[in-house]
Amino acid sequence: MNAFRLLADLTHLLSIIILLVKIRTTKSCAGISLKTQDLYVLVFISRYLDLFTRPLSLYNTPFKLVFLATSITIVYYMRYHKVVKQTYNKDSDTFKHYFLILPCAVLAFFINPKFTFIEVLWSFSIYLEAVAILPQLVLLQSSSNIDNLTGNYVFMLGAYRALYLLNWIYRFFAEDVVRWIPWIAGLVQTALYADFFYYYIKSWRNNERLKLP
């Protein structure tokens, strides 16, 4: 455990808290992509099957349970809550997210640390997480204005993987750890946010409302 890793996980948790606060207090999920949230449920379920096979950890186990519970809660709100579901921008959430799942599954089938059920699903979850933000970014681009909570949510979600990159650099030098699969996927995942980061920081510096061109 190092500071980058701890900060990354807390940032990830914070992003989810921001999203839940937005949904619960404003009773609105405007600007949030249900497709991205669906993908996160799939990511967490396929990655955290090891909850059943690995010994409990005081740090990892609670995080895994929280990520599973909160992602399912968010999807539940967006689909079934009688007020929240009416605020969902269904017509703008146009990304064909099913087309992300098959390529990630094929990639996981061929590129994995070990050809076992758990390891292939783990690889699948790493690949899918890398691209799961795409429907959300497409939805934001079609939004004329993005509320602060939504902007902060996406920023924290991007910052989390960027901090993992620092963690991996640290671990490479301090612990001699080399793990190509999460590194490359994590690099792709962070790179997808580059455009968003640029406009987020620009709007923050100019004290303007966030808008993606």
């Binding site: 090891d50 995080f63 783990w122 001699d176 080399v178």
Partner: peptide
């Protein structure tokens, strides 16, 4: 350098 997956991360 280990070749096992990074299972100690989230």
């Amino acid at each position: 350098a280990g070749s096992s997956p990074l299972k100690d991360e989230l």
